[in-house]
Design a protein around this nucleic acid. Structure first.
Length: 218
DNA sequence: AACTCGGGGCA
DNA sequence: TGCCCAGAGTT
């Protein structure tokens, strides 16, 4: 853990401990052994809760399991299966097209490199990192809007773009709790550290929070 | 940088 | 009932 002073490291560990205490049931959802099924689930997760994605995919994967099952699906058929996840026209088209590319270009295997993953339709840097981390055990931390905002407010990162925040979190958070930390930060971002009116007064992290310390000095 | 997709969550 | 969103693509 080079490049980080001792105090900073201790601060990170205290924050993680508090998150764990307050959110013991933080879900580690969207974990599929099958990289392709994780890919489909992660594309579906845009602007949608993991809980709902899991409900939909549980049904979906009973009918369709592999790239070849999705590649020749009519878009309307898939749209109807995934409707509850929202944005279903885009997601349906992207899942089918990605399945075709995986079949034709990668012999049915989901690629395990960032540069290849982000070329797939419906896969951006967040989705790519979810797959790299959870399906291939790679060194990647997925940064969504909540992780981005909460990390910056807490002072875990001073980056102005997701890539910098991603690098900071990758460096500062011990790898064995990346998956939990990801969901803790998201959960905290929805419950307390919201985008508009964060409930700082009731936040158990305000002693460590840069946002609060600046906000509270009148 | 702003807009679009969209059903569901939540006040 | 209306606002907002656990991203990504397009203009």
């Amino acid at each position: 853990m080079k490049g980080i002073c001792k105090d900073e490291k201790e601060k990170v560990l205290k924050i993680l401990k508090l998150l764990e205490e307050h959110y013991p049931n933080a879900t580690t959802a969207l974990r599929y052994e099958n990289p392709f099924q994780l890919l489909v689930a992660t594309i579906l997760s845009a602007q949608c809760t993991d809980k709902r994605v899991n409900q939909v995919t549980q049904r979906l994967f009973e009918k369709y399991k592999a790239p070849e099952d999705f590649a020749n699906l009519k878009p309307e058929v898939l749209e109807n299966e995934i409707r509850e996840c929202g944005l279903f026209k885009n997601k349906s088209r992207n899942i089918i097209e990605s399945s075709r590319i995986i079949l034709e270009k990668y012999a049915g295997r989901v690629p395990d490199k960032f540069e290849e993953l982000v070329k797939l339709p419906g896969v951006g840097r967040k989705t790519a990192n979810v797959i790299l981390a959870n399906a291939f055990g790679k060194h990647a931390f997925a940064v969504d809007t909540h992780v981005f905002r909460v990390s910056r407010r807490l002072g875990l990162s001073d980056g102005n773009d997701p890539l910098k925040v991603e690098k900071d979190l990758t460096m500062k958070i011990p790898k064995d709790c990346w998956n939990k930390a990801h969901h803790w930060l998201i959960y905290h971002g929805r419950r307390i550290c919201t985008a508009r009116k964060p409930n700082c007064e009731n936040c158990f992290l305000k002693d460590f929070c840069r946002f609060w310390s600046e906000k509270s000095k009148t």
